[in-house]
Design a protein around this nucleic acid. Sequence first.
DNA 1: CTTGTGCTATCGTCTATACAACATGTCGAG
DNA 2: CTCGACATGTTGTATAGACGATAGCACAAG
Lengths: 242, 242
Amino acid sequence: MLINRSSPLPLYYQLKEVLKAKIESGELRPHERIPSETELVQLFHVSRMTVRQALVELENEGFIRRRQGQGTFVAEPKLRQGLLRLTSFTEDMRARGMRPGARVLEVRLLQAPELLPRLKAEPEEEFVKIQRVRLADGEPMALETSFLRRRFCPGIEELDLTDRSLYETLRERFGLELGWAEQAIEAKLADEYEAEVLRVQVGTPMLLMERTTYLADGSTPIEHVRSSYRGDRYQLYVELRR
Amino acid sequence: MLINRSSPLPLYYQLKEVLKAKIESGELRPHERIPSETELVQLFHVSRMTVRQALVELENEGFIRRRQGQGTFVAEPKLRQGLLRLTSFTEDMRARGMRPGARVLEVRLLQAPELLPRLKAEPEEEFVKIQRVRLADGEPMALETSFLRRRFCPGIEELDLTDRSLYETLRERFGLELGWAEQAIEAKLADEYEAEVLRVQVGTPMLLMERTTYLADGSTPIEHVRSSYRGDRYQLYVELRR
DNA sequence: CTTGTGCTATCGTCTATACAACATGTCGAG
DNA sequence: CTCGACATGTTGTATAGACGATAGCACAAG
């Protein structure tokens, strides 16, 4: 495991990847002390500031903990899992070890005045509404209703989104990189329509998540999604940091 | 707004606070370009690395965005709100502009075999159970049941926790710094007991959050909490990053 | 008009060095 | 034996300087 100085990748990044690999492979175990900054300087022949940049980022990502006067230690594996990132249903289910899927209920073009301010859209702008039942291992898990700004993904209404990740499609077909999202989470009861398509009783508890997603530029909203998850099958796990 | 070199606070931290204040006061507005790194060096008479440390942290906290070749810009205000950090009910309500409070229902010592593995506790270890109705502007908002490991906060059962933040108490009276937590979020229906103490109907949708909190050392569990929030009054806001 | 070249300002990476702050162990004074 | 002083090793803060990578612009060449 060495660092390649002719690589276009920054040195601190290479060092970070080397250490990350050692942690993930188990070569460095939780609570174990990793070499000190000075030792890493000698091992990899880079300056201490470069070592520190790698360590700072690894700490932010939850892989290590640094303690002044003591050293740097491998963190609990827990810390590297959750933290509630912006993920698609597909990614989420795969991470849970389930097989994701979808059944398309509705795809159509429309105007949606109530979404204009939230999506910073032009007055007459056209949206694509995509409503799908999301499946996990073949069983209904959530009802997902997306509104996409059509000008950013023209023709998406022609694609078959059965069993396909919407976010993957946006990236691969339209070159759209997502950046972040604001999301509201609340509890409510299943209404008649949800009960029917999800095959649950009316009044079943549901986790409702409403999300506005922005592109990587940080300021262009691209979609608004309303997802109702079955409260009897779905649970959110989060790691919280102080 | 200047930097005090005889202050015990690090220079980069002071600079960070100055910039944060300017952003929060609106003196620097969203999308506006802030002075370049070189200009900040001249303005505050610190080195560029010091400026950069301040800027890196501000970017991580969502206050600014840096773009190579262009400059550094004030971020959307949205990005600085959520991100779901480890907060107490008290902090959470204050951030929402509401007046937090509590009514104590039960405080007692007990053993809880089912919590032992989760809290990495000794077989006969003693816990303090604290059950409170949490109030926002005087109205019931949530039912909170905490189990604390008594060995870390002996005598806490004697304190009056009405209208007091538990986390503040842990820090101030027992010197316990919290580090992180794992939390599960799900939707369920109010049972009879919850309905009674929260003054809602049985079957009202509830947000159930179950949390295990660890100390700053990262590996010592200190409490397990089960909180039921009224679904009709409470909504979680989260910022998700990619 | 289009293309490319070069300039400039910006942030990104990297080095070398110094001292401060903190944790821990050692050892001597009492 | 106990306690404080000290040494050592660790991360934290700060400086000065160099060069790289990228974006935007002006301007010349085709």
